[in-house]
Nucleic acid binder design. Structure first.
Length: 700
DNA sequence: GGTAACTGGGTTTTT
DNA sequence: CCCAGTTACC
């Protein structure tokens, strides 16, 4: 191990070194895709430590748990003591850590429930009727829409009337009711010890703004490093501001062309505003791309949206060459040597052809020596790979899928979480509701009656279980009492492993009775209980599960074995920050890429462009784009004369000029004329029906 | 009265 | 595949 200088700065290029060793005021690192952003951030943390900043006084804020884990693992010196650790995690995880440590000061029960967006919608659904938002009139917003509006108001610090007017105009008649609903929602959460994702941020911000708590909380840190700053929302930007008033000790890393979370209230304007906020802001640009071959970078630079003052053009380092890369370089022809293979746009007859084409190219790569995990298929929305997944299975190509449906959304997993939440926070009415209804014979009405008898907002509801059970008809009472008896016992225990074990055994019978495939589900729950057992408390286990849900049940079982080799299917959002030698981008067809849901506003279309930029820049060596020309259940919009629907308008002609175009072989039917066969079968069957009306064959 | 079983229509992206 | 709305059954 090397010690001393160049130490932290070893192996960095000039710009990276300037960023890592920046002294004094606030710093913005404008880092294009693949320019060594993570490496620079890790180096900066190491450099700060060499300057005498204790690791425990450095805070690293990221957007995903994976990014945090990755950086913390690289930033921790091998000889570091456990106590000598950088604070690192997502905004939400760090907020939780602080709130949990001071739960009493925040007037929260020690094991308060952190609820996910699905829970938020459930709560709003129960409150909706009292606020004249029931769906008898067709136009009343549904629970999920109410939840979207709520979180948008909070995360952009915008009044409900304004949000509705700008983004939900069809709800304009309900602004007053929504306001009332959201007020009631806040009271409801307080009464039942519920904290949603937005609350985590709001509570942290409020504490930082408090005259007494604020100085203490921001005094915990000498340096704050924020990754993906283009994806902060108004509350997060405010948290950063209050952590580092004046900007001293602040490092933000970001790229406004990669802002893809506007739907969550994020706004790249916060990054752009940094310069105005901090007059002494230093800006360092990282433009040397270490990831992609030059042919791919040409396309990336062509589609990259440029914003005045933050322009950035990536230059290639993997293909040393005389000419500068830049916008317009896409005119270079396919004979151009040393730039890698040009991106290929594969025109496919339909979606099935596209699926076959992707499989064929994946297998080609595999035969050429690539592992499956060196290739990724990136989609705009999780459902876009449905047909492909069938084709992959049929051909025996192993794959894992990230994004889309998550393990914690499976019904039995929710059941387990509900049971655990009843134990940890008996005031949690959502958890009670779900747990009670898990039992055969209990629906919404009986569950509600039991919960009323429990008086959840009063202290110690578990002590009233005996009386509350009398609300149940004798037929169902024994089963529910058996479950609750065990959960009440679990609540009285200390060790997390014991609690998790009893919760699991309490669920055994109701889960077995409810689900046909109970054995597989119980195996999932066993893994869940095992994972929970290793956490410091049931509360910690539940929060981790909520803030960072495992993508699959096997995820929970631990690291995949080293010899396992899977093709990766991921949403573009989930692929941010990652890279693969070969990337496949399917569904470049009207309504899918760009998504027609996003095109109603100019801001939405701009975000679709940024998403495409993110997708393109994931590829190291080879990029395949697939344009199916027709899809089932989907009308093709008017073609723009190039045979791609609106695609060439979306990407621009210069982007298409960066690609080679290939035609996928059209599907050829194995049996050309099936109709006569159907008639033959029809006649055969008609013989079975008797001879009375055999004039017209039945057919199939 | 209350629950379960059936049916038909619709599906972005995630901490 | 999930939700809402409806019908059938206890």
């Amino acid at each position: 191990m090397t010690t001393g200088l160049p130490g932290a700065l070893a192996g960095l290029n000039d710009e990276q070194r300037a960023a890592a060793a920046h002294q004094g005021g606030p710093l913005l690192i404008l880092a294009g895709a693949g320019t060594g952003k993570t490496r620079t951030l890790v180096a900066r943390a190491a450099w700060l430590r060499e300057q005498g900043v204790p690791a425990s006084r450095i805070l690293l804020l990221t957007f995903t748990r994976r990014a945090a884990d990755d950086m913390l693992a690289r930033a921790r010196p091998p000889d570091a003591a456990a106590a000598d650790r950088i604070w690192g995690g997502t905004f939400h995880a760090i907020a939780h850590r602080i709130i949990r440590a001071h739960a009493e000061s925040f007037a929260l029960p020690p094991e308060f429930s952190v609820i996910d967006p699905a829970d938020v919608a459930d709560v709003l659904d129960t409150l909706r009727a009292e606020h004249d938002l029931v769906g008898t009139r067709r136009r009343a917003p549904r629970a999920a829409a109410c939840a979207d509006i709520y979180t948008r108001c909070v995360n952009t610090s915008t009044p409900v009337a304004k949000v509705v007017k700008a983004s939900y105009p069809w709800c304009a008649d309900f602004v007053a009711q929504l306001g009332g609903l959201f007020r009631a929602y806040g009271a409801h959460k307080r009464a039942h010890g519920l904290v949603d994702f937005d609350d985590l941020l709001l509570l942290w911000r409020a504490a930082l703004a408090d005259p007494a708590a604020g100085p203490a909380l921001r005094g915990l840190f000498d340096a704050v490093l924020v990754d993906e700053y283009q994806d902060v929302n108004a509350v997060q930007a405010d948290i950063v501001r209050r952590l580092r008033p004046g900007g001293a000790g602040l490092t933000c890393v970001g790229d406004d062309a990669q802002a893809i979370y506007a739907f969550r209230g994020a706004d790249p304007a916060h990054l752009r505003d940094l310069a105005g906020e901090f007059p002494d802001l230093a800006v360092v640009r990282l433009v040397r791309n270490y990831r992609s071959r030059r042919a791919i970078l040409r396309l990336a630079n062509t589609v990259r949206p440029q914003h005045e003052g933050l322009e950035l053009t990536l230059t290639a380092t993997r293909d040393a060459g005389p000419e500068a890369d830049g916008i317009g370089a896409g005119v270079t022809g396919p004979g151009d040597r040393g730039a890698g293979l040009r991106p290929v746009l594969v025109r496919c007859h339909d979606e099935a052809t596209q699926a076959r084409e992707i499989c064929a190219r994946v297998l080609d790569g595999h035969e050429a020596g690539l592992r499956f995990c060196d290739q990724a298929v990136l989609v705009r929305a999780a459902g876009h790979s449905d047909l492909l997944e069938i084709e992959l299975s049929a051909r025996g190509i192993p794959f894992v899928k990230y994004g889309g449906l998550r393990f914690t959304e499976a019904a039995h997993v929710k059941d387990f979480i509900a049971a655990a939440r009843v134990v940890a926070n008996p005031a949690d009415n959502l958890a009670w509701f779900r747990l009670l209804r898990l039992h055969e014979g209990i629906g919404p009405v009986l569950a509600r009656r039991v919960m009323d008898a429990l008086a959840l907002t009063e202290p110690a509801p578990l002590e009233r279980w005996g009386a509350a059970a009398d609300c149940l008809p004798p037929r169902v009472r024994p089963a529910v009492s058996a479950t609750l008896g065990q959960l009440i016992a679990a609540a009285g225990l200390e060790r997390t492993a014991d609690r998790a074990g009893i919760i699991l055994s309490a669920l055994h019978d109701p889960v077995s009775a409810r689900y046909a495939d109970a054995a597989a589900r119980l195996a999932d729950l066993q893994r869940l209980a095992d994972a929970a057992a290793s956490r410091p408390s049931l509360h910690e286990a539940l929060v981790e599960l909520t803030l960072d849900p495992p993508a699959s049940g096997s995820d929970l079982a631990g690291r995949p074995r080293i010899d396992d080799d899977f093709l990766v299917i991921s949403t573009v959002h989930s692929a941010k920050g990652l890279e693969w030698p070969v990337v496949h981008l399917p569904q470049l067809v009207d309504g899918f890429v760009p998504s027609d849901m996003a095109l109603s506003t100019p801001a939405g279309e701009a975000e679709e462009h940024r998403l495409f930029y993110v997708a393109v820049t994931r590829a190291r060596d080879q990029l395949y784009l697939y344009a199916p020309l027709r899809l089932h259940h989907h009308r093709m919009a008017r073609d723009d004369g190039h045979g791609y629907g609106q695609l060439s308008r979306f990407l621009g002609a210069s982007a298409l000029a960066c690609c080679d175009v290939e035609e996928a072989a059209p599907p050829r039917p194995l049996i050309p004329h099936l109709a006569p066969l159907a008639q033959t079968i029809g006649r055969e069957l008609d013989a079975l029906w008797g001879a009375d009306t055999a004039d017209t064959p039945t057919g199939i």
